[in-house]
């Protein structure tokens, strides 16, 4: 297949797509880089070039920066913990032969199709609202004081909402992994005297390691850019300001495009460091 001609043809045909992708990625990146070196505050009519690293220094030294990083890590870590644990359990459950398996599986996947803004609104108004929310009604029915979720436990609330959205993804990938396990291995372990817990620990979990790695990698990359859920629920208040949200506030609320762009570049660098680090740490799982 790989004759000289076919290679030239392949390159020629791929060129438009590659070009489009490059432009799509490079133009915003270069513009952001360009803005990040400027003092650009449109509402005050300031548009001054060549500030060097001033914006970067100001962004990093501001008191909100470190806190926003910690908040981001808490959010990502919390969601990963819930989705991986819950995903493994759900996958094992869905692997059992049950009545109405097809319908149940579709229902489990459904949250993934709901838009983040919509799901955050639904959770905020229908579940977590301290007066009309379902949780409030439940608490009242049990004679308890309703909790104002988003005011009293804002971080936990957002983690719950995001986990609910990402649980289907984890479950789906882990379910296919569970199904690919050779049943004779489990039977052999059973004959070898391994109880249900030992079988899970010694056979199923190692088999799932690779799928869990994939789930963690992919989810981390997407979770670092969580925005809509925070915007809709707390608006970044009560210690829920992640790095992404901080960048948004700098640009839109403070109308400081230079500062925000610098923050954006820092976020991109940090995300890449985390992604590469993750690949290094868990990527060896993927080789075997």
């Amino acid at each position: 297949m790989a004759t000289h001609h076919s290679r030239i043809a392949a390159r020629a045909m791929m060129a438009p797509a590659v070009f489009l992708l490059l432009v799509w990625m490079l133009v915003p990146l270069i513009l952001t880089l360009y803005f990040s070196t400027m003092d650009y505050r449109p509402l005050r009519g300031i548009y001054e070039c060549c500030q060097g690293f001033d914006n970067y220094v100001r962004f990093v030294t501001s008191s909100s920066f470190l806190e926003s990083i910690l908040t981001t890590l808490r959010l990502v870590g919390g969601v990963l913990l819930i989705t991986v644990l819950g995903g493994v359990l759900l996958a094992l459950l869905l692997d059992q032969p049950i009545w109405g398996q097809g319908v149940v599986r579709i229902l489990v996947i459904a949250p993934f199709f709901v838009m983040p803004t919509v799901s955050a609104l639904v959770w905020k108004n229908m579940f977590m609202n301290p007066v009309n929310g379902l949780f409030a009604h439940l608490a009242t029915a049990l004679g308890l004081q309703p909790i104002d979720w988003l005011a009293e436990a804002p971080m936990l609330s957002i983690i719950l909402i995001v986990s609910w959205q990402w649980l289907p993804f984890a479950t789906l990938i882990l379910l296919t992994a569970v199904q690919s396990l050779d049943s004779e291995q489990l039977e052999a372990a059973e004959m070898d005297g391994a109880g249900a817990l030992s079988r899970f620990g010694h056979i199923i979990l190692p088999h799932l390691a690779r799928a869990i790695t994939v789930v963690i990698l992919i989810q981390t990359i997407f979770l670092l850019s969580i925005f809509a859920e925070i915007f809709v629920t707390t608006g970044g208040a009560f210690g829920t300001r992640t790095l992404t949200y901080l960048v948004y506030q700098r640009i839109i609320e403070s109308q400081n495009i230079g500062l925000g762009s610098a923050g954006g570049i820092i976020a991109v660098i940090l995300a890449n460091i985390i992604a590469i680090g993750l690949m290094r740490v868990v990527g060896k799982n993927l080789d075997a």
């Binding site: 050779d182 004779e184 291995q185 052999a188 010694h202 056979i203 190692p206 088999h207 075997a288």
Partner: peptide
Amino acid sequence: QSYALYPH
């Protein structure tokens, strides 16, 4: 038949 060895 498949030996059912534990691959890890």
